[in-house]
Nucleic acid binder design. Structure first.
Lengths: 212, 212
DNA sequence: TGACAATGTGACCACATGATCATATAATAA
DNA sequence: TTATTATATGATCATGTGGTCACATTGTCA
């Protein structure tokens, strides 16, 4: 956690530092991201930085915590209305909400995308203080719940499905890169929604021609 | 491409350099991977390194070329017998062959896994001289072919399915990390095969309970 | 043997990194 | 005003980076 000094800072200065850090950490992995660059971008002296943060990792964990908190807050409303929906509607809502989140907070989304690429295990485990892995268990919970209700074919492997669903986010990113050359949730909103539906169609109905 | 000097080297020395480089580039991204470390590991002087390679990128592209060549050679036999197989059998063979490849050449597989994480666009495009993207077009080809034969439900979006299939490789990796804590194709070969079948089951049949 | 080319070598360069610290400045309180 | 505390600063440190280069070593042919 940052020092008290950091939180005593005027709001604009503090948020300038935060956004500079988010910018840096979303463009490069932890090792490549540069404290110097963050200082330059936010116009603070090197010495000041180390008065606010114990070290680089301290800042990184703090930034990631902000992103995770924001994401949880954003998704909490979705989870609340889950019990009224079918499994397809649940998944659909979840992914569309994910797209919406990335559109509203592209910086946070890029941060998460970068985090999935992170190689340094000690850095990863410093961020995961049970914060991140919950998305996996959320899927497993939904799956088992739906299985109990008979919504899912019992022959489906829960773990396989869970991992498949987790990867759908980055698949949507790849789709955008393939289509527009860059990750941009602003343009072609409709196309993205259709693509999400295409993916869910495959997962729910399979690809095999039924001849029925 | 490396200098002629490099290829004049005694075989054991040359392959020592190659394996040292593969080791380094499979453990860290391009930026973090260190020329110094590669020199130390392979017991050559810094000066020698730069007599063999124009620069760091020259070596990296060379190493990746080796990996891609090996992979193509490994998979060529598979493609040859495709026409005798159904789509499910084709996919199944493709992924099991992928698992086999990763087991036989874990270094190459790790190299590829690392490459997918690469941030530096100039480094990526230096490797992709149309060499890499072919896996995507292979899937698209298979899909359209199967659609023409009526094997695939025509409502399935080809691009969505293609991207889904591309991600299955890393999903298998995630499965192993989830199960064994590390990417290791040696142990539990049977379990991995079963998992591949679970994934293919979902993709072919969907998850929805049919009540039929 | 001597001459010439091919290889090997590690000190060295400029630069960037994360982090430190003595000092300067500002803010507050007596 | 003075004393005290909180904050800002950038030169400096040790270390690592990719890359260079003058020189030493080796191999080859006459």
């Amino acid at each position: 956690m940052p020092q008290e000094t950091f939180f005593n800072l005027p709001d604009d200065k503090r948020s300038l530092i935060i956004s500079a850090a988010m910018d840096e950490f979303s463009k490069a992995d932890y090792n490549t991201a540069s404290v110097n660059q963050i200082c330059n971008k936010s116009n603070i002296a090197k010495g000041s930085f180390y008065q606010y943060f114990a070290d680089k990792l301290d800042l990184y964990v703090y930034i990631m915590t902000l992103a995770i908190e924001e994401k949880i807050k954003f998704f909490s409303s979705v989870i609340a209305e889950f019990h009224t929906l079918s499994l397809l509607e649940q998944f659909r809502l979840l992914f569309l909400k994910g797209v919406e989140f990335a559109k509203k907070y592209p910086q946070y989304a890029a941060l998460g995308e970068q985090f999935t690429k992170e190689n340094d295990e000690s850095v990863k485990s410093a961020v995961i203080k049970e914060g991140e892995k919950q998305s996996e268990s959320l899927f497993l919970q939904m799956i088992d719940n739906a299985k109990a209700k008979g919504e899912i074919d019992s022959r489906v492997d829960s773990l396989a499905l869970s991992l498949l669903l987790q990867s759908l986010n980055s698949i949507v990113n790849k789709y955008m890169i393939d289509k527009f050359g860059t990750v941009n949730y602003e343009q072609n909103e409709e196309g993205i929604n259709d693509f999400v539906d295409s993916l869910l169609y495959i997962i729910f109905n399979g690809i095999q021609n039924k001849f029925d």
